[in-house]
Design a protein around this nucleic acid. Structure first.
Length: 892
DNA sequence: TTTCTCACG
DNA sequence: ACGTACGTGAGAAAA
């Protein structure tokens, strides 16, 4: 076996603790334990530690702390770190607990009289480097980047402590423009306000970098000082030479501090679970306690051990013990071994009847009348987890699940859509129920995924699942009621789950031959384009690699760099479009990109997921994912089939009816989000436009461009007004708008101001909704769907701005999602009532797609819009447009 | 696994 | 001064 390489993690304990404290400063009052001790810094520190441990995976760790106020630096310069505000007591009381935490983690801490944590780190890093260790330093202090070398990486916390920026020598150079060794000299010239040493008068970072680039070092500068042109700066440099060298001395992190600790002593041997449990209990860290429990494989007495649970294996013999008449409510779980429940193997099931738990891996038992009747009875209510999944699974066995009462997954999503897992065990934990494990713990993950060999293990897991569902039912129902969300659940989401199940089961027919024909055509065109691009580039490269493409465009062909990404040059469409005309290669790349996307995602991707059994695509709608209440569609995603460009739109020719003599029929809401906005903002002007049936974008254009008649609105004015309308819905910013329609920021701001002046109701709404979110911590839709916005009070400008835009957008997008959901439920009802053959197949956010016999089309043309526009009564009318044709492509 | 790019509303 | 539009999923490359 290869010996693992030593990797030393050094953490600046003081600096990280400070950062953690101030990052969670606005939640200070929420982080207080039962003894009145503040815990925010400990909490933040712990999170940082976990993420860095996962990321770095060190063999050795040490956390260094400052020993006290006086150090060798204060001796040299009395005012060093002078004038600093006193550490607040809410923070200083947390230091001992942080040291306890580290002890629990099995991590050495160290402090050294007369030296700062930095010097301990510098010294140990140098020692370790000599012994060929890799070293990672974590700190909140950018000055430590002076330590970076090929072996030493410095990770500086940004945005509190949750994210880090890693400095390697090349990153230092890129970011600051100096090599690591020059940082000290820069500090010598610039000084440091927080450490309170001055540097040379009038020299800031810019000047210092310029000087160091020219002369290399501080010594270099003074050696050549006579050659410098006469200037104030030169005078300052000469006069304050002594100060500069003093500051250099202060800034330099020592690599020879008398640290009395050997590298071997910092070896990390792992956590002491018992110590951590005691600490977490003291600090009231309930979430961490349960995490700890989840990650420690051994059974430990310190956790309340799992309850004993008794259950019976169900067999043909004892099947008759089940009596339907005695029970009007059961808890049921069908276990399907894989995400895609349309195809994955069904491996078992468990039921709670009365106070008995039954379990089996014999799927055929479900088809027997004793159980089938129970599940299909409209008298027996079933509690479960993920009703849609259960319904589809049972459907594959010929069983039609009839009456769902409590769906743990769905209810939990409605209560809080931000922390939602699809795993019953994890979800239960979030609701503080710990008597069931996560699927990952039982089955493993990735390549190691396997059904447990021991049948008892599987059985116990399945039984614990139904027990968890049962135990959480009352509590979560109560929470729904408190939030006034019971109707949202019983009248919208729960019935919708069954409708979605049936849409998924029905599937949509795909004409694979059509796709294959397109595939071979595209293949040819792509290879032609490829050749042409290689010719123009003068070499062959991987066209699908943005990195390689960047090198060709911006280095070899020397095209101007418009935008950079985190890792290199951006080659996104917007960038390429600006480069058009500079080289013929650009147009070809754009063309290639467009076709390659169609080929890989839509032709090959789609062909892969078409069922061999029935030639259909059976998507899965994720009903409990989005934070706004929309659905999403996976495997395949049928909500993003191309439509905007003709070339891509042809993909829709492959979506066909499943019977001859049928057609595809589609209806969509026109501008539903703007109508919702008109409704909830109660803006008079906007409502009037919709009530009068005006073209909303043209009407907006008239107002923001101040023209009196619709005839004066040019297509360009309308286009810009449309972008403004979209911007309003998204929570507008002048920058975003300016980017979108390619105008100046100033002009964008003017558009927005004029808009908000005329649509003052909208302006009021935007202000009020942000206010509401700040007061209540959430916003909601017209049907009380909630979205929590914890960042709305953040001190971080970006986070807060984002939360504010979300507060404006979510009620709009979410209410629109609610409305189409209601329409789907009413629509399904109507199809059944009228006894139509027509089937609802797809939902694309504001559009419903059906297949139907041609003779039913006139009926649908009348019925569907009626059902959709009457789904909810708003202050403005809803408008629905319908189309139909032989394929999805032809519905236009 | 993360990043970039691009398809949709 | 900050650094941006809102909500998604998938494929390919690079790590």
């Amino acid at each position: 076996m290869v010996e693992e390489k030593n990797k030393l993690l050094l953490i600046d304990g003081n600096s990280v603790t400070f950062r953690a404290f101030f990052a969670l400063h606005n939640s200070l009052s929420r982080f207080v334990n039962h003894e009145g001790l503040h815990t925010n810094a400990i909490y933040g520190f712990k999170n940082m530690l976990d993420s860095i441990l996962t990321k770095v995976n060190p063999t050795h760790i040490l956390v260094a702390f400052d020993a006290g106020k006086t150090t060798f630096r204060t001796e040299k310069f009395t005012d060093y770190k002078g004038g600093r505000a006193k550490t607040p007591s809410e923070l200083s009381e947390q230091f001992p607990e942080i040291k306890n935490l580290l002890e629990g983690y099995g991590i050495k801490t160290y402090e050294l009289k007369n030296y700062e944590a930095d010097d301990i780190i510098g010294t140990l890093a140098a020692k370790a480097e000599k012994k060929n260790y890799d070293v990672v330093v974590v700190t909140g202090d950018r000055d430590l980047t002076q330590l970076t070398t090929d072996k030493i990486t410095v990770a500086v916390t940004v945005k509190g402590v949750s994210e880090i920026e890693e400095y390697t020598p090349s990153h230092v150079e890129e970011k600051i423009g100096l090599i690591p060794e020059q940082i000290v000299d820069m500090k010598a010239l610039v000084g440091d306000t927080s450490d309170n040493y001055p540097g040379v008068t009038k020299i800031g970072e810019k000047t210092a970098i310029k000087l160091l680039k020219q002369y290399g070092t501080l010594d270099g500068i003074y050696k050549n000082i006579d050659e410098m042109k006469k200037s104030k700066m030169k005078e300052n440099l000469i006069r304050e030479k002594e100060i500069a060298y003093l500051c250099q001395d202060l800034a330099e992190i020592r690599k020879d501090a008398p640290v009395e600790i050997d590298l071997e002593e910092t070896e990390w041997t792992g956590k002491n679970i018992e110590k951590l449990v005691t600490l977490y209990q003291k600090l009231d860290f309930r979430k961490f306690l349960s995490q700890l429990k989840a990650e420690s494989s051994e059974q430990l007495d310190i956790f309340e051990s799992k309850s004993n649970i008794e259950f019976t294996e169900l067999t043909e013999e004892n099947l008759n013990d089940i009596k339907i008449s005695d029970n009007d409510e059961i808890v049921f779980n069908l276990e399907i071994d894989g995400e895609n429940y349309h195809t994955a193997e069904i491996i078992g099931f468990s039921i709670k009847i009365g106070d008995k738990y039954l379990v089996s891996d014999d799927i055929d038992l479900l088809k027997k009348k004793q159980i089938k009747n129970l599940l299909e009875s409209d008298e027996v209510e079933v509690d479960l987890f993920d009703g849609k999944r259960q319904y589809v699974g049972l459907n594959r066995l010929g069983v039609t699940l009839s009456k769902i009462n409590f769906d743990l997954l769905l209810v939990s999503y409605l209560l809080d859509n931000s922390e939602n897992s699809n795993d019953l065990g994890l979800l239960a934990q979030q609701h503080e129920y710990y008597d069931v494990e996560s699927d990952e713990q039982i089955y493993g993950k990735g390549a190691k995924h396997a059904v447990p060999e021991d049948k008892e293990v599987l059985f116990e897991h399945l039984v614990r699942k139904v027990k968890a569902i049962n135990n959480l039912k009352e509590k979560l129902f109560n929470e729904l009621e408190e939030n006034q969300q019971l109707d949202l659940y019983t009248k919208i989401e729960r019935p919708l789950s069954i409708i979605l199940a049936n849409m998924e089961i029905a599937g949509v027919k795909v004409d694979s031959n059509r796709l294959e024909t397109m595939q071979s055509e595209l293949k040819e065109r792509l290879s032609e384009l490829e050749q042409e691009i290689y010719n123009e580039a003068g070499e062959e490269f991987n066209l699908n690699s943005p990195k390689q493409l960047g090198v060709i465009l911006f280095e070899k062909l020397k095209l101007p760099v418009i935008k950079k990404t985190k890792t290199g040059y951006s080659t996104a469409v917007g960038v390429l479009e600006q480069l058009r005309g500079m080289s013929p290669i650009v147009d070809n790349i754009l063309q290639y990109r467009q076709l390659a996307k169609i080929q890989s995602t839509y032709i090959e991707g789609l062909l892969k997921v078409v069922s061999k059994k029935d030639g259909k695509a059976h998507t899965r709608y994720t009903q409990t994912l989005t934070s706004t209440g929309r659905l999403s569609s996976v495997d395949p995603n049928l909500q993003n089939i191309p439509v905007r460009l003709e070339e891509g739109r042809k993909i829709r020719q492959a979506f066909v009816p499943s019977h001859p003599g049928w057609e595809i029929f589609s209806s969509d809401y026109s501008q539903i989000e703007l109508r919702v906005l008109a409704h909830i903002s109660k803006d008079k002007n906007m409502q009037e436009a919709f009530k009068e049936g005006m073209d909303i974008h043209a009407s907006t254009a008239m107002r923001i461009f101040n023209v009196d008649s619709p005839d004066e609105v040019t297509p360009n004015m309308r286009r810009q007004a449309k972008a403004v309308n979209f911007g309003i819905v998204y929570g507008i910013s002048d920058y975003g708008l300016s980017q979108n329609i390619g105008i100046s920021r100033k002009q964008a701001k003017q558009f927005i101001d004029t808009y908000l002046d005329t649509f003052s109701g909208v302006k009021d709404y935007m202000e009020k909704i942000v206010e509401f979110a700040k007061e209540n911590g959430y916003v909601e839709t017209i049907f009380n769907r909630r979205r929590y916005l914890p960042d709305i009070k953040s001190r971080n400008f970006n986070l807060r701005s984002f939360a504010e835009r979300t507060a404006m957008n979510s009620p709009i997008q979410g209410s629109a999602a609610d409305i189409i959901k209601v329409a789907m439920i009413n629509m399904q009802e109507m199809l059944k009532e009228k006894n139509l053959q027509a089937k609802m197949l797809l939902q694309v956010h504001d559009e419903l797609i059906f297949e139907a016999p041609t003779e039913e089309i006139p009926l649908l043309e009348d019925m569907v819009p009626k059902v959709m526009d009457s789904a909810v009564k708003l202050d403005v009318p809803l408008k629905v447009e319908s189309k139909h044709g032989q394929t999805w492509f032809d519905t236009k």
